[in-house]
Amino acid sequence: MDIITLDNVSYYYKTYDENNDVSYAVGVEGVSLSIEEGAFVALVGHNGSGKSTLAKLLNGLILPKSGTVTVAGLSTADKKNLFEIRKNVGMVFQNPDNQMVASIVEEDVAFGPENLGIPQPEIVERVSQALEQVGMTEYAKRSPHKLSGGQKQRIAIAGALAIRPKVIVFDESTAMLDPLGRREVLNVAKQLNKQGMTVVLITHFMEEVLDCGKVVVMSGGHVVKIGSPMEIFDDDRLLSSVGLDAPRSIALSRKLKSAGFNVTENCIDAKVLGGEVCQNLTNK
């Protein structure tokens, strides 16, 4: 079953030139897309390709100028639905420091459910469960400001989880983190997906999309390709035209394959690839 459907969705940003004349810049245009419940979908594209606009459309932070966005059967265009939709679609943004609202971790995580008017005992339960899901239970009483970037993002994820959404959208949530922090966040995303959560991962680190079921490539506000990670990496011309790179190991394996080497196509592990190349060289 599809949890989110976008039907021919367009969104334009108002811009003003020197004479204060209004013109419109494309955010996204004519996007149709469906996301199945329990899926792990990556949205990739260069800066300004429309990824974040799309993310904001998913929970009604912005509304389509034309077309419809439907979340769990509810259209975002209807104001009455927005409350329900935002409960269903949690969001984690890019900058960990901009998402902290309280001075103690557990209070920060409780902010969402408190806003929903959930009774106190249940909030306590939700908070402790959410912290457990992101592996931050022992930090419940700490100040979020002294945590590392990856830990802060895990708290932000816990905050989203405490609302018990059906979908979590990671809007470049790993972009400002160091490699360790990036791994932390990505592992939590994978773990949540295994437990049945629908995950939408927006990124331009192509290595992060390898474990996704489906990759949506955006450029200039349009969806230019939807496919499995390997189908996307197969399309060299597409990748270079949208300014994305296949991970280096995969790029090398593809070059070697087309030069007649007997190697795994789209090999992400450079060590394995190296081993295979050695066998080719030895047996030549």
Binding site: R248, S249, L252, L256, K271, G274, C278
Partner: peptide, 29 residues
């Protein structure tokens, strides 16, 4: 470990030498 370094290390362990100045995908290839 950078991908191309990992690749070159594995080749080195098997006695094949990728010159030290070959570091990009293109150069390694």
């Amino acid at each position: 470990i950078p991908h191309m370094a990992k690749f070159a290390n594995e080749l080195e362990r098997n006695g094949y030498i990728i010159p030290d100045n070959c570091k990009t995908v293109e150069q390694t290839f």
